[in-house]
């Protein structure tokens, strides 16, 4: 266990070095589908934070009882429970938002980010590390969703969080709030992220000699 990352490393890794969207390319379905406005994207990120945190903590608590061939069943069961809780909760207290997000909240169950974190971190490390990992990954996911959603909402409607940020003369690029806009934005932003990473590692290589 000595070579396992520490809680702090787990937390930092989730935000940028192992960002779930830009680096691991996981959870693409909601990333593409709910990022046409920032409010929806942030609700989605909040839901993922809750589910990931709860699932990671529970899995970490019972990690010594897991049977290797039954672990995925236990992961799925735990994740599905918390996703259902989020779904019902949104329907009760944020009804309009729950209507807008539609099937993408229940679809968190099959979101690979969460099952991946259960497998990689929570089933092997302590509760504290698992919680830090969940927080870091969720933050990274939230940042990724926010970056895509901001670009799409500003370009597509001239607004951000429903408030006008571009002059009214801005010709709304409708394509940005349509599905093609999601692919365009994600592709360009991912290209940018890869460029930055490549440049960063080149600089590091030079520094080392």
């Amino acid at each position: 266990m000595a070579d396992q990352p520490t809680p702090l490393e787990r937390f930092i890794n989730g935000i940028l070095p192992e960002n779930p969207v830009y680096r691991q390319v996981l959870g693409m379905c909601p990333t593409l589908a709910v990022t046409n406005n920032l409010k929806g994207a942030m609700t989605m990120a909040g839901a993922v934070l809750f589910v990931l945190l709860c699932a990671n903590v529970i899995i970490s608590l019972i990690r010594n009882l897991l049977k290797p061939h039954l672990r995925i069943v236990v992961f799925t069961l735990t994740i599905a429970t918390f996703v259902t809780i989020v779904d019902r909760f949104l329907a009760a207290y944020m009804y309009q938002m729950s209507k807008q997000l539609g099937p993408y909240i229940p679809l968190i169950i099959v979101n690979c980010i969460i099952i991946c974190r259960c497998e990689v971190c929570a089933s092997k490390q302590s509760v504290f590390t698992a919680a830090a990992d969940a927080a870091g990954q969720s933050l990274g996911y939230a940042l990724a969703l926010a970056s895509i959603a901001s670009v799409r909402e500003i370009m597509g409607t001239g607004m951000l969080f429903g408030l006008r940020v571009l002059p009214a003369a801005w010709p709304d690029w409708v394509i940005m709030v349509l599905p093609p806009g999601a692919f365009l934005t994600l592709g360009l932003l991912m290209g940018l992220a890869n460029y930055l990473v490549a440049r960063h590692s080149a600089v590091e290589k030079k520094a080392r000699g």
Binding site: L70, V74, L77, T78, A80, T81
Partner: peptide
């Protein structure tokens, strides 16, 4: 499978 059974009942 006791853990699975227990967890599914509890959840």
């Amino acid at each position: 499978a006791w853990l699975v059974i227990f967890l599914s009942t509890f959840f």
